[in-house]
Design a binder for these strands. Sequence first.
DNA 1: ATTAATCTCTACTTTGTCTGTCAAGAATAA
DNA 2: TTATTCTTGACAGACAAAGTAGAGATTAAT
Lengths: 158, 158
Amino acid sequence: MKLSTKSRYGVRAMFDMAYHAGTLPAQIKDISRRQNISPRYLEQIFQDLKKAGLLKSRRGPQGGYSLAKPADEITVREIVLAAEGELQLVDCVKNRRKKGEKEPACDFDNQCLTQHLWAKASQILGDYFDSITLKDLCDQGKEMGLEKELDHRFMYFI
Amino acid sequence: MKLSTKSRYGVRAMFDMAYHAGTLPAQIKDISRRQNISPRYLEQIFQDLKKAGLLKSRRGPQGGYSLAKPADEITVREIVLAAEGELQLVDCVKNRRKKGEKEPACDFDNQCLTQHLWAKASQILGDYFDSITLKDLCDQGKEMGLEKELDHRFMYFI
DNA sequence: ATTAATCTCTACTTTGTCTGTCAAGAATAA
DNA sequence: TTATTCTTGACAGACAAAGTAGAGATTAAT
């Protein structure tokens, strides 16, 4: 019943981007250093987030990733969903007969009381995650007096 | 972010016991047959539930397991907690320095915004599970017209 | 007392997922 | 042209989940 590191790192990384957002795209190496996440691994996570339409990227020098939408339009739910693949606490709730699977995930199918229980729980969890945006986290960060690191690349331009 | 089968089987099995409750203790083999759970595996799960004080057992012929409390005093949360071990969506919320562990689970410790986020989510989930008792599930079952299997052991006494 | 039914405990195996690492390639700004 | 950065896919080690198995302890019934 644990969230995977992909979800946790994903939220941390995207928060980091929103918090330190500048004019230039953010680079993996900076985010990974600030958040102490393996850069190679973060790349993978960002691929997922990009596929989900939460990030956009630019290659080449001065390239990097940036948020695909304003911070107040990106919810924790979207990030977790993209990283985790889905937001169900249990598999038997899922659609049957998706490609390749011949057996339903559960023998009792719709006769099952507990199925409804888990589905409701998953929904409650999703609703909570949906109520929190990256902007909310940034506001919290400011309140806490969390330091923003100066973008070292600005140094060259001053 | 999936619940383990221990939780799911545990809830199903305990619901089954509450729903089919008779004067005699329920036996593993009956529950496992009705709920289609490996009897050996169910034994293990029942050990956990017994340690948690949710079940009591009697050995020998006509032995078996029975609920340690009335069905309306056993919540889903208790069962999941006993089967899952804990109810936290992430580890970094846990107490540090428990036996053997030298490192904190997270480098940012209490400086972390997301830590609070996950803790709150875990709590919301726990609250929901706490609001549902075995009796609630039984009532639902009756409403749905879920069949009760006649206890075959009664046959001998009629 | 004996027997058969049942729970108890511990260890083992299998299987799969998580968490990363690595290498080679493609795109792009300077 | 070149250095930088993202892109993609393969791969591996560690760990936990899920289930199997066997030997033993307890007890009701005979």
